[in-house]
Design a protein around this nucleic acid. Structure first.
Length: 578
RNA sequence: CGGGAUGUAGCGCAGCGGUAGCGCACCUGUUUUGGGAACAGGGGGUCGCUGGUUCAAAUCCAGUCAUCCCGACCA
């Protein structure tokens, strides 16, 4: 390919709306162009890279036994209604209707579609396991598109869905996909960490995310520094293990209410009562349209909203309104506590005309403790000398992990080392899905005994554009992008420097010889000064640069430069063929 | 949706009551040509949109749309 037919679209200045390196460089080097927030056009080089990454993924997926399909982007509402996601997906799903007012959604993901497909053709356990995948556009009306290709509203995803007769089979495919992903990201030149991830309200028994460590990562990871332990998890999933165990000291003093006028937060009350934050019970209250969730956790820690949502089984929880708080704690916000609470688990209350279930959750680090302090369920009042089992009861088997873990907590796996925190970009996710969709769409096959058996599923996703962008995020310098060979648009960027038409013709011929040998080369044959070409070559970032000019016409030497190291060497043109 | 900011030429910006400017890019010519050339000439903008204030609005006011940043979603 040459510049006279496929032009460069490079620019000197960063677009003003770009904040991260990959977005700036991909824009400046003429790979992508934003059309609207979260929607990007791919320019010729960008699309070549995109296709190369797709091809890496495709090759590996095929190698690991997955079969490629292609599903419609526009999906009928009916499918989503069956699974319940037509309503639960909310505004994130882009919807539209046809001329007959039939509703559709631009698929944000394709569990329903693929499950529908599986239902059409899977009838026997002998057909299993099977792993369908596709590489296609996804649409998510993200609240905040960000960082160029990292978080888009339209993006290409490789999504795979496997179907199994039992958990053992799912486990086997799940492990294969983990291996497959490792190979894919390796080949893309990305160093990934796989971390334990939240499996969300969908349930499921396991989920891992493939993370690329990066300062611009939107995920916080907690890692055990010990090489034998290797515990790694997404912070929202990390089990909390305190550095120092909470005191279990108890006294015989009875629970007592004390005046704490206008002191509300744990911080304020701790100062006021001259007590340690660790001896407090922090009460947090969330709600959605159908439930009010009270959680009690150690006073020195923050709640993990992810854990709260999973354990309560309630999605889209938000901080409770003052009305709801008053309803459950008989006091304004800031004075709730577990002692003499006037609601209990399973109660139904009415707040501003809406009926809501009360769900109460206790953190396990409050079990068997005494000398605790919490809100008194009365305005301007706190309770001291609280003792679990005496003044409030955490039911057997309901000691939950509700606390958000953080750096320097103990590793919950080995219990020996302090966790380290790092940021990561999520480029892939493997997930044991279970039966949610096969049950909803009633997908079963006959097992070996001739009995119908509902299938279990796994799903596996990779964001293609995000992977592309992440490669740049990890591989650039002050001059521009540095592509790994596997993803580069071309292997060579060839710069011709000629003073006469004859010389130009001679370089053109050399280019033709490379093309004949099927060498991946982009030829910058523009009538530009050399400096412009050198800079564009560095900016666009192909692995090698070939310069043909004065030295060739005088000594038959060309110059080869390695983009990554900037090392230059002279050689005969023919050496390119070896 | 809450908080903050910005919309002026293809890109990056200045101008902030008197009718539009700079750098880069672009076109023509000359001289240049191994790390973003110099000179000369030239083209291009109803200043996001709508309304208001004013003799006069890019500039002040209101509304609206778009974009970006910080928080809740996710590949």
């Amino acid at each position: 390919m040459k510049a006279s037919q496929t032009p460069l679209f490079t620019q000197k200045e960063d677009p003003k709306d770009a904040v991260v390196a990959s977005h700036k460089l991909l824009s400046r080097a003429g790979y992508i162009k934003k059309q609207a927030s979260g929607f990007y056009a791919y320019l010729p080089f960008g699309y070549i890279v995109h296709r190369k990454i797709e091809e890496i993924i495709r090759t590996k997926m095929n190698k690991y036994g997955a079969v490629e399909t292609h599903l419609p982007v526009l999906t009928p509402a009916e499918l989503w209604q069956v699974s319940g996601r037509w309503s639960s997906m909310g505004p994130e799903m882009m919807r539209l209707s046809d001329r007959h007012n039939v509703n559709f959604a631009l698929g944000p993901t394709h569990e329903e579609s693929i499950t529908w497909l599986a239902k059409q053709y899977l009838h026997s356990y002998k057909q299993l396991p099977i792993n369908f995948y596709q590489i296609g556009k996804k649409y998510r009306d993200e609240i905040r598109p960000r960082f160029g290709l990292i978080r888009c509203r339209e993006f290409v995803m490789k999504d795979a869905y496997s179907f199994h007769i039992d958990d053992a089979s799912l486990e086997e495919t799940y492990q294969k996909m983990r291996e497959c992903y490792r190979e894919i990201f390796d080949e893309c030149g990305l160093e990934t960490l796989s971390v334990e991830a939240d499996s969300g309200a969908m349930g499921g028994s396991g989920s891992e995310e493939f993370m690329v460590p990066s300062a611009i990562g939107e995920e916080t990871l907690l890692l055990c520094p010990d090489n034998d332990c290797q515990y790694r998890s997404n912070q929202e999933k990390t089990m909390f293990k305190p550095q120092t165990p909470y005191s279990s000291d108890k006294s015989n003093a009875a629970a007592e209410r004390v005046d704490t006028p206008d002191v509300k937060t744990v911080e304020e009350v701790a100062n006021f009562l001259k007590a340690e934050k660790t001896s407090f019970i922090k009460s947090v209250i969330y709600e959605n349209s159908s439930a009010v969730v009270l959680a009690f956790i150690p006073g020195d820690r923050d709640i993990s909203e992810t854990k709260l949502k999973n354990l309560s089984g309630e999605a889209d929880l938000e901080m409770a309104s003052p009305e709801s708080i008053e309803k459950v704690s008989s006091a304004p916000p800031g004075f709730a506590g577990p002692f003499e609470l006037n609601v209990k688990n399973g109660d139904e209350i009415t707040v501003q005309g809406e009926k809501k279930n009360v769900i109460i959750l206790y953190d396990k680090n409050l079990k068997n403790r005494g000398n605790l302090i919490s809100g008194g369920n009365m305005a301007d009042t706190h309770c001291i000398n609280l003792q679990e089992a005496r003044d409030f009861i955490i039911p057997e088997g309901e000691e939950y992990d509700l606390v958000q873990a953080k750096e320097s907590d103990l590793c919950p796996k080995c219990g020996k080392h302090n966790l380290k925190s790092t940021k990561g970009i999520e480029v892939g996710h493997v997930f044991k899905l279970g039966k949610k969709y096969t049950e909803a769409l009633d997908v079963s096959v006959l097992d070996a005994e001739g009995r119908p058996s509902t299938l279990t599923m796994g799903c596996y996703g990779i964001g293609v554009g995000r992977t592309l962008s992440t490669i740049v995020e990890q591989n650039y310098d002050e001059k521009g992008i540095i592509w790994p060979e596997s993803a580069a648009p071309f292997r060579y960027y060839m710069i011709g420097i000629s003073k006469t038409e004859e010389e130009k013709k001679e370089i053109d011929d050399l280019y033709e010889r490379l093309i004949e040998k099927n060498i991946s080369v982009y030829y910058d044959d523009r009538k530009e000064r050399p400096g412009i070409k050198f800079n564009d070559a560095d900016l666009t970032g192909f692995p090698f640069q070939i310069t043909i000019g004065k030295n060739y016409f005088e000594n038959k030497k060309i110059e080869l430069k390695i983009r990554k190291t900037m090392q230059k060497s002279e050689m005969a043109f023919e050496e390119l063929f070896s």
